[in-house]
Design a binder for these strands. Structure first.
Length: 578
RNA sequence: CGGGAUGUAGCGCAGCCUGGUAGCGCACCUGCUUCGGGAGCAGGGGGUCGCAAGUUCAAUUCUUGUCAUCCCGACCA
């Protein structure tokens, strides 16, 4: 079933864009008849969409198998007990869809499978001799996302490849991690995607370190930076800020309070006092969900990275403090905050850059008042210097001497984590080492969003006429368009080419529909078939057909008898991209 | 969950302000013509106007409620 007659297939294309689809990949997947929405974040995969998804899955399977991962399949319905044991039943929140069976026993739809796989492994793995092990599956996940959006990009039900590695110790686990990392690199390279592997925050999955695989696209939900000189790349949530060296030889001026009526922003204050914004300190107050308060200090022209601050403080949630909270700890309205003369003893976290600043301008904790010539040590103290700044394009690379950071938007299509013993400890997954001593297993977990990757590929490869599929994940590699189905010669030649391609193992869609040529061309462009052979009576008179390459628009006239071989070569060249 | 918006035929939309029982384009069906970039003419089918109350002689239109969907934020493959 690699090839297909268009007239007998099912590709419900749409001429107009549905109004509720915002991003290009969503619009095009709907228009190309790949998906249809059943409910918010829940989609039918129509035949064409499923073909692309299966193609990508198979690439993933091949690379997983090559990396010694073993395929299995776990259920999507999971018992509450396991989640209670790992502690996530309480922590996962509303994203975990829970329900009861007829006996009132509690279950959930699996959003991920650490619990289930670890449970299996702890029952079956007893000896160091059985490791390393890596299990993977391609399976439907359910996460009751707060806001599903963008079609397959952020669905509630979605197909994911997840893999879990089990090793005897941290070093062995690092090797497993590296193997998966390299497999992921190959997977996305094989698909012809423009992507970056970036250092990332581990988020709710936990563990010690992780990398995200980001397909570069303007519509991406994540911001990432990469060095133009070395290999450093990171999610902006995680990206380290380079250390700024400041000259500290300036003599300390006298601290002075000055009136700054209605000057609430750094720009206002700096302009009013005629100083550069980098001579000011920005003061922000944050609160945790449990009511803890902390103050953050940054150079005036810098932006805070909330995640860095949150991780440093160890809070579960971080929120801008309310006006009441701010008034209580500083005695001042927003706009004039500073670390001098606080009403409450709260931690004051300063960005590392603040350390070298002297004679700065900062809020005086009094309406319409700022200080000038404020100096740390003499006028105020901080509880710690921490990197809490959001990096910017053009920043120096934190890893190499010469590089500058470039900024991109990315779609997260894969994520690899070193989990350590987080789950194995909670679920008591242990083995006996060579000395007969019980040890805790080290784990890693590795995910790829299957549907999301297909969507990301479309996001990155399209034009005004529709999708331009990379050959490895195209639903069909080639199409044969018979210009006029009433012309027996045209139909006979087209069919001959179709059968020949099929015999050569090319996945071909034969557009044999009794439609006007314009409709066929538009449909073929829309659904993104990479190669198109057009059989028309004019060309046929000279024994030639037209071969068009979707991505470049290049058109060549090829002798009837040679076109199948030519296509076969093009397809093979594209698939050999490993 | 907070903020914003929208629900009228498969898709895209108009009508609603100023109540009188629904219309346009595309798609679909029939016929003829057409046939290398979403054809033309003629005829035709299809709608509980998201749902429920209320006001009214009368509600797609006004009021209230409710549900659904989409967009902006926190979460994530």
């Amino acid at each position: 079933m690699t090839s297909m007659l268009y007239s007998r297939y099912f590709i419900p294309t749409m001429k107009e864009t549905p109004s509720d689809a915002e991003v290009v990949s969503h619009q095009l997947m709907l228009r190309a008849g790949m998906i249809r929405k059943l409910a918010s974040g829940i989609y039918n995969y129509l035949p064409l969409g499923l073909r692309s998804i299966r193609k990508f899955e198979n690439i993933v399977r091949e690379e997983m198998n090559k990396a010694d991962a073993i395929e299995m399949l776990m259920p999507s319905v999971q018992p509450a007990e396991l989640w209670q044991e790992s502690g996530r039943w309480a922590f996962y929140g509303k994203e975990l869809l829970r329900f009861k069976d007829r006996k009132e026993a509690e279950f959930c739809m699996g959003p991920t499978h650490e619990e289930v796989i670890t449970d299996m492994v702890r029952r079956e793995i007893k000896s160091y001799r059985q490791m390393p092990l890596n299990f993977y599956q391609v399976q439907t996940k359910f996460r009751d996302e707060i806001r599903p959006r963008f079609g397959l990009m952020r669905g509630r039900e979605f197909i994911m490849k997840d893999a879990y590695s089990f090793d005897v110790d941290s070093d062995a686990a690092d090797l497993s991690y590296e193997k998966m990392f390299n497999a992921y690199m190959r997977i996305f390279e094989r698909c012809g995607l423009n992507f970056r592997a970036v250092e990332a925050d581990t988020g709710s999955i936990g563990g010690s370190s992780s990398h995200e695989f980001m397909v570069l696209a303007d519509s991406g939900e994540d911001a990432i930076v990469s060095c133009d000189a070395c290999r450093y790349a990171a999610n902006i949530e995680k990206a380290e800020s380079p250390l700024f060296t400041s000259s500290c030889d300036a003599t300390h001026g006298a601290l002075q309070k000055v009136s700054t009526p209605e000057m609430k922003t750094i720009v206002d204050v700096a302009g009013f006092l005629k100083v550069a914004p980098d001579q000011t300190i920005k003061t922000l107050v944050y609160a945790s969900d449990t009511g803890e308060i902390a103050m953050a200090l940054l150079r005036g022209d810098h932006e805070l990275n909330e995640l860095k601050l949150k991780n440093y403080l160890g809070w579960d949630e971080i929120l801008m403090a309310s006006e009441e909270q701010i008034l209580a700890c500083t005695g001042s309205p927003v706009g004039f905050l500073g670390p001098i003369g606080l009403k409450q003893d709260i931690p004051v976290i300063a960005d590392r850059v603040v350390k070298g600043m002297v004679n700065v301008v900062m809020g005086a904790n009094e309406k319409d008042q700022h200080y000038i010539n404020a100096n740390r040590g003499r006028d105020f103290e901080v509880s710690g210097f921490v990197d809490i700044r959001t990096v910017e394009a053009g920043d120096a690379c934190p890893r190499c001497e010469s590089g500058k950071l470039e900024m991109w938007r990315g779609i997260e299509v894969g994520h690899v984590f070193k989990l350590g013993t987080k789950y194995s400890k909670a679920l008591n997954a242990t083995y006996l080492d060579a000395n007969g001593k019980e040890q805790i297993i080290f784990m890693g977990c590795y995910g790829i969003g299957i549907g999301r990757t297909v969507a990301a590929a479309i996001e990155q490869n399209h034009d005004e006429n529709g999708i331009i599929f990379p050959i490895p994940i195209a639903p069909f590699q080639c199409s044969v368009v018979a210009v006029n189905t009433k012309d027996a010669g045209v139909m006979a030649s087209a069919e001959e080419i179709y059968l020949c391609l099929e015999k050569l193992g090319v996945e071909v869609l034969f557009d044999d529909r009794d439609e006007r040529p314009g409709i066929k061309f538009k449909d073929n462009d829309l659904i993104g078939i990479p190669l198109r052979i057009v059989v028309g009576s004019k060309g046929l008179a000279e024994g030639k057909v037209e071969l068009k390459i979707r991505s470049t628009g290049e058109v060549q006239s090829v002798p009837l008898g040679e076109v199948a071989a030519t296509v076969k070569q093009l397809v093979e060249a594209a698939l050999r991209n490993d």
